[in-house]
């Protein structure tokens, strides 16, 4: 299988604090690749380097075989790399539908048309509604983003990513802060999207990880200590010692 997104030898330090140490990792077409690790292991920092919001000190990032290490985030997005944020990033003042319409707009012809009214533009809102329906938010289309419940906000972020028709999506803890039932709904949602695009899934919820992931990578103190199928990783003694063991 071909790699959509690959990191080779990524290294990054904040001041004296190393957060990414020689990490090499690949996301294959269509797979869900889970990235797990304790708090502060450097998962979000790694996502940042893949998405382009952080520049690595060393190493390379390739997207569909082309080097993108020094490409800014918006150009990586245009090449098919979408993401969700650990802390929900939605545009307040816009409705759920309009938030997704903004994502549709990014892919539409003339995305910055200066005199073309955005509100009520069917060319944007129809695909947006389809993406909302795909995450089960169709009835909430008109609700302002800021009044949505936490779980709805996370689903809305996924709808925005969907609307970009990505090749690969980086999901930074999509279940964070959710109740169990809400969390299962998102797991069901992500499972249903499997195969439409590749996903790198950062998640603390092991139930979700083992339900969804084709492969699991384990990051501890900025270093990748294991990569492989879920069962193999679960059985890995180093992983048990460093991570799973401590969680019981």
């Amino acid at each position: 299988m071909s790699d959509i997104l690959a990191a080779a030898g990524l290294t990054k330090a904040f001041g004296g604090l190393p957060v990414t140490r020689n990490v090499s990792l690949a996301v294959r077409a269509g797979e869900i690749h889970a990235l797990i690790g304790p708090n502060g292991a450097g998962k979000s920092s790694l996502i940042g380097q893949l998405a382009g919001t952080l520049t690595p000190d060393a190493g390379r990032v390739t997207l569909d075989g082309a080097e993108v290490t020094h490409l800014p985030p918006h150009l990586r997005a245009r090449r098919g790399l979408a993401r969700t944020f650990q802390v929900s990033a939605l545009i307040g003042g816009l409705s759920a539908l309009e938030n997704v319409a903004l994502a549709v707009q990014a892919r539409a012809p003339r995305p910055l048309a200066p005199f073309r009214r955005a509100a009520g533009d069917a060319a944007l809102e129809q695909p947006a509604l389809a993406a909302l329906a795909a995450v089960g938010l169709a009835e909430r289309a008109a609700a302002p983003a800021e009044v949505l419940a936490h779980g709805e906000r996370r689903a809305l972020e996924i709808a925005c990513a969907l609307a970009l028709q990505p090749r690969c999506v980086l999901l930074d803890e999509p279940l964070a802060g959710m109740g169990h039932a809400e969390g299962r709904a998102i797991v069901g949602l992500l499972g249903g999207l499997k195969g439409r695009f590749a996903m790198l899934l950062v998640e603390h919820d092991m139930e979700a990880v083992f339900a969804l992931a084709d492969r699991v990578s384990v990051l501890v103190e900025g270093r990748l200590i294991a990569t492989g199928p879920p069962e193999a990783v679960r059985a890995d003694p180093a992983v048990r010692a460093a991570y799973l063991g401590e969680a019981g």
Binding site: T53, F85, A89, L90, I91, G92, G93, L102, Q105
Partner: peptide, 18 residues
């Protein structure tokens, strides 16, 4: 819309490809 969305969260808007 892009301009005003970026006022609220530039990182988000860039992540969409703008």
């Amino acid at each position: 819309r892009v301009l005003r969305a970026a006022r609220q969260d530039a990182g988000r808007v860039a992540a969409l490809g703008f």
